[in-house]
């Protein structure tokens, strides 16, 4: 499944799922990141709901596929279909709307329940352009994020503030996690040859092996 690169450096294929209540600006955020557009007139493609971004961090190449769940909020049972096998999740709330922050907490609970600690979490307070109407304090959000092992960021998709950093940080952490899992795998099978010079590709590698739950 994973497109294994023949040449080094290794390419990471990461799946990132975007969760949060409606109207928190999830879609603007990802459109801003991938296409640097904010709700301007532009050619629309229906594929917009599935965006990819390639980036290089150090000597690592990363392909992000970003799954926006916008418009899906009312389909309660669909969550697992979307976040299954995700390497990272971006949980967005609107800093002017406390309810949306509570929703983020629910998502964190559910993701932990389903995916354990394999998934890297980033919590985002979006719409800092509306600072005056803020209803969720930075301290509260940061404390909460820390307590669940997530990183917290503040963004304004509208003003293009802080968006780039979110994805960069998350990618770094997903790489670390993938390295950790690789190391664990190697430790489990000591017979496996060392990847000398980085030109041996682990063919059986699946990106950040997801927890296999009964049905999948």
């Amino acid at each position: 499944m994973a497109a294994s690169a023949v040449a080094s450096p290794r390419v990471h294929d990461f799946k990132v799922v975007l969760l949060g209540e409606g109207c928190v600006g999830k879609t603007s955020l990802v459109l801003r990141y991938v296409e640097n557009k904010f709700n301007e007139k532009h050619e629309s493609t229906l594929q917009a709901s599935f965006l990819t971004k390639k980036l290089t961090i150090g000597n690592r190449r990363v392909n992000l596929s970003i799954w926006d769940t916008a418009g899906q909020e009312r389909f309660h049972a669909l969550g697992p279909i979307y976040y299954r096998d995700s390497n990272g999740a971006i949980l967005t709330y609107d800093i002017t709307d406390d309810d949306s922050f509570q929703k983020v907490k629910n998502w964190v609970k559910e993701l932990k329940k389903m995916l354990g600690t394999d998934i890297m979490l980033t919590i985002i307070g979006n719409k800092t352009d509306l600072e005056k109407q803020r209803n969720v304090s930075v301290e509260t959000a940061e404390q909460y994020a820390e307590s669940v092992g997530a990183t917290h960021f503040q963004t304004s998709a509208k003003l293009n503030r802080g968006v780039e950093e979110v994805f960069l940080d998350l990618s770094r952490r997903m790489i670390e996690q993938a390295d950790k899992q690789d190391a664990e795998k190697r430790a489990l099978s000591p017979s496996s040859r060392s990847t000398a010079a980085g030109n041996v590709v682990l063919l059986e590698e699946t990106p950040a092996a997801p927890i296999k739950s009964g049905c999948c």
């Binding site: 879609t27 603007s28 459109l31 709700n39 301007e40 007139k41 532009h42 629309s44 229906l46 917009a48 709901s49 926006d68 916008a70 418009g71 899906q72």
Partner: peptide
């Protein structure tokens, strides 16, 4: 979802 993105993605 497709319709939503069409709406969100274009002004």
């Amino acid at each position: 979802k497709d319709l939503y993105f069409l709406n969100e993605g274009c002004a």
